[in-house]
Write a protein that binds this DNA or RNA. Structure first.
Lengths: 238, 238
DNA sequence: GCTGCAGCGTGACGGCCATCACAGCCAAGG
DNA sequence: CCTTGGCTGTGATGGCCGTCACGCTGCAGC
């Protein structure tokens, strides 16, 4: 059996560094074995699509490596990015547990390896292992949490500058080192950032040069340094 | 023991018509008994607050009657309403299962009765009854789903008119009778609608009179009739 | 009755930003 | 080398809508 897109199956993605993360860490051994029996690993190239908005849920994908863009789009082609998923996250979870169609589209933006579990297998597994169901609930809660956070940046801002500031501050909150100056790598195009904060590509470009002019941030290639976090914060709810 | 706000405890809210809804329907008898042992009922008047954004989660509220507004707000007082909860829904679920602070504020807008379950009790209950944990996961998935839906109306619209049209169409999708003409009661002020779709109160007023002029809708008191659903749909992504 | 208050309707104005258009720039690849 | 295509920078323009301001209605309560 071949994985999609003609790539070989990755034999043991279960050995990837994030296996113990989040969803299924610390489960009792029988549960882990049950899990191993129903997962199948695959690799996906850049540009591949794991699932599409509106599809009936086939199952969940546990992301082992690479990065995946979760977005929704309207009839006229405009699209809104809700989240960039990192290794360790589980994709398609809400749709798979509820049985409703996927609400988002998942596109691979950095070559990825993922474990797939089909919906029937997954539901059986949850029924048999109550502890796992609880973990799933927690993961869903966190997913919800981050969705709310994005709603806040989009819905509560008065200006595009404020949206971008909120976006950058939230990024830095995740990758924070606690220092006054935060360095982070941002492998997103202006276009993608625009789609995350609900603005146009040109506006993002303009805002960035604005921030650079005001010494708030500094960009070198895909590295972004937040020089003046307080300055960014002062832009909120101005 | 007295409930908050000086109102008497409602003795058996478990007999309310929505007990069997959603979260805990069809659970085996021992689970239902376990649940009954840890719930405490209370009534809340209009204007009461069940929990506040940022608070550590005390537990969940199962709404038996009345309606509750879930919102988040920014430093400058601007606020964004995410959802109006109806009887049968469970409030505070994501925060309670994850242990993170409530991400929203819950205000009573129509006198409500609710069952409260404290976080420790609730978590124990879930650990002991795996089936219940699965139901919780499903409920969370649906909550997430509706959050995404609201993100779409706010984030993917080009104009305020489009946002309002999306909002009305989604309302009608829930209360739909399948006919060409949908009647629904809308007990929200223009201000509240504005906060739901991310617009100003005046704009909502103007859009409504616009829609009335175009014979798309018709308003009488708190009753709203969608006369021309297709017309509303033609406003999307225009 | 009157007063107060919450919600609705409407006009005027001004700023923000989406859009269009085009010009550099870099990397990949023939 | 030149071409192509994706990404970034920047100007000009125009419209949408947030904001301020004020008047209106209807309802609750003394």
């Amino acid at each position: 059996m071949r994985a999609p897109y003609g790539l070989d199956i990755i034999e043991s993605c279960l050995s990837c560094p994030h296996r113990e993360d989040r969803l299924f860490c610390n489960l009792p051994p029988p549960a882990v074995q049950g899990l191993a029996a129903i997962t199948s690993a695959a690799a996906y190239p850049k540009g591949a699509t794991l699932f599409v908005e509106g599809q009936l849920p086939r199952g969940v994908f546990i992301l082992c490596s690479g990065r995946v863009k979760l977005s929704t789009s309207s009839a006229d082609g405009k699209s809104l990015i809700l989240r960039i998923s990192e290794p360790g996250e589980v994709l398609g979870l809400p749709a798979t547990v509820t049985g409703k169609p996927y609400e988002l589209t998942a596109d691979v933006i950095e070559p990825a390896q993922a474990n797939f579990i089909s919906r029937p297998d997954f539901l059986n597994f949850l029924r048999e292992h109550g502890e796992a169901a609880l973990r799933v609930a927690q993961q869903l809660g966190e997913t919800y949490h981050s969705a709310i956070a994005e709603m806040r940046t989009i819905g509560l801002s008065h200006s595009a500058g404020e949206k971008l500031a909120r976006f950058l501050l939230e990024l830095s909150a995740n990758h924070d080192k606690g220092k006054g100056e935060v360095k982070l790598t941002l492998t997103l195009t202006h276009e993608e950032i625009a789609q995350m904060i609900g603005a146009s590509r040109e506006t993002v470009t303009r805002m960035f040069s604005d921030f650079k002019k005001k010494q708030l941030v500094q960009v070198k290639g895909s590295t972004l340094i937040i020089k003046d976090k307080a300055g960014l914060e002062s832009l909120l709810s101005s």
